[in-house]
Simulated assay, not measured.
Amino acid sequence: MKRLPAPAQKVLSRDDLQQVCDFLYQQTGMLFGESKRYYIERRVTDRVLTTGAASFAVYFDRLRSNPAEREKLINAFTVNETYFYREEHQLACLGRSLLPDLITSRRPGDKIRIWSAPCSTGEEPYSIAIWLLENWRLVDAYHIEIVGSDIDTQALEAARQGRYGERALSRLSPDLLEAYFEPAQYQYWQILHDLRESVTFSHANLIDRASLAPQGTFDVIFCRNVLIYFDDEARLLAADNLYDRLKPGGYLCLGHSEAMSRISGRFTTRRFEDAIVYQRPRDIP
């Protein structure tokens, strides 16, 4: 369908805007409002034009009844700002404090599960894999399973492909780039096949308990810089869901501006040399 010139595109009425915001909140927990009008209108108008809907009302009826279109709109609103070795101090905490604590009750060969949720386009779970290979001397003694999950299906597909540009790779040393990537076209680098195979990616929604249950439970969860987009109610729901995905004694790492102590009292705050993290108590089933 031919795209209309910008001046001919209709803006959303106040009621239309509220419908979109309510829909996104119910589906994702992300909070939008009038202050984000331009951001919302650009994305909704693009979907209206792409689908050929005659009006916003027609499009919104399709959105509510069509899971594929619902997925496309949600993809358009997710934030995928990330890069390799982001908040590296938490990776150091993983190797120096969290894993040494966890393996006190494990034997060599036992499984250790690490979850990155949301994982965006894959930089975080791949960073975890690279950091462990480079810095944790016991990495080969245990069965490390790394899972990356996100609500954005396009981001997940990009993560599976594992192709990254200079900005995403800017914090990696030339030695790491050479060891774990191979040059691809147009100034992109691709994660080596064996490393791509070591990370599993899956679709999951932090506020949807049913979508999280198939993920199983984890020893360590990285859930960074997403709760800032939620309101108090959605944060608490996500916190409860993350608690349920943690094994007793497991650890949760949040973003630097997020604090579980302001969201839920179910976790124990742990202050380690490299980072503050949150633990599911061992003695509570």
Rank of each mutant, 00 (worst) to 15 (best):
F23Q: 03
K247G: 04
L156T: 00
Q279A: 07
R107D: 13
L99E: 03
I40D: 02
G250W: 02
K36Y: 05
L195P: 02
L206D: 02
H256T: 10
L49W: 10
S173N: 08
V58K: 14
I40N: 07
Y229C: 08
Y188M: 15
D15W: 07
L177F: 02
F181G: 04
I221H: 02
L102I: 14
C119I: 03
I221K: 02
Y25G: 08
Y126K: 00
Y278W: 11
S264T: 00
R3W: 11
Y243Q: 10
P214K: 01
D274I: 01
P183G: 01
T51V: 03
V199A: 03
A259K: 15
D274R: 08
G109H: 11
A92I: 09
E182Q: 13
N225F: 04
L4Q: 13
I103R: 12
L254G: 07
L98C: 14
E258W: 09
I130D: 01
F23P: 06
A57K: 15
R47K: 09
W131E: 08
R113N: 08
I146P: 05
L242M: 12
F230S: 01
D175R: 15
T200H: 15
D152Q: 03
E123P: 08
P285L: 09
F222K: 04
L91D: 11
Q279H: 05
G162C: 04
G265E: 03
N241S: 10
L4I: 05
S257V: 01
F84R: 03
I191H: 04
Y142V: 04
G122F: 01
L49K: 07
F84E: 06
A238L: 11
E273W: 07
Y59Q: 06
Q90T: 09
D110E: 10
A117F: 05
Y83N: 09
G162I: 00
K72H: 12
H203N: 11
G216H: 03
T121V: 12
I263L: 09
S120R: 00
N66W: 07
D244M: 12
S127W: 02
S202K: 13
E81A: 09
R37L: 08
C223K: 00
I103W: 02
G52Q: 07
P100N: 08
L246I: 05
K36P: 13
Y83D: 11
L237Q: 12
F32G: 04
I284W: 14
E81Y: 10
L91F: 13
N80I: 06
E258P: 05
L254N: 04
P100Q: 09
H193M: 12
H89K: 11
H256P: 02
N241D: 10
R70C: 12
W131G: 05
L63M: 07
D140C: 07
L192H: 14
G216T: 07
S127V: 04
E197T: 10
G250C: 06
L98R: 07
V20H: 02
P281Q: 02
G52K: 02
L63A: 04
L94R: 00
D219G: 04
T269E: 15
V79E: 05
G29L: 03
M30R: 09
Y59C: 04
T28P: 07
A141P: 13
D232R: 15
G29S: 03
R42N: 14
F181K: 06
A141D: 15
D283L: 11
G122Y: 01
G95H: 08
E182M: 11
R167P: 06
E182F: 08
F218R: 01
G148I: 01
N241Q: 08
I284L: 14
L31D: 00
V226L: 14
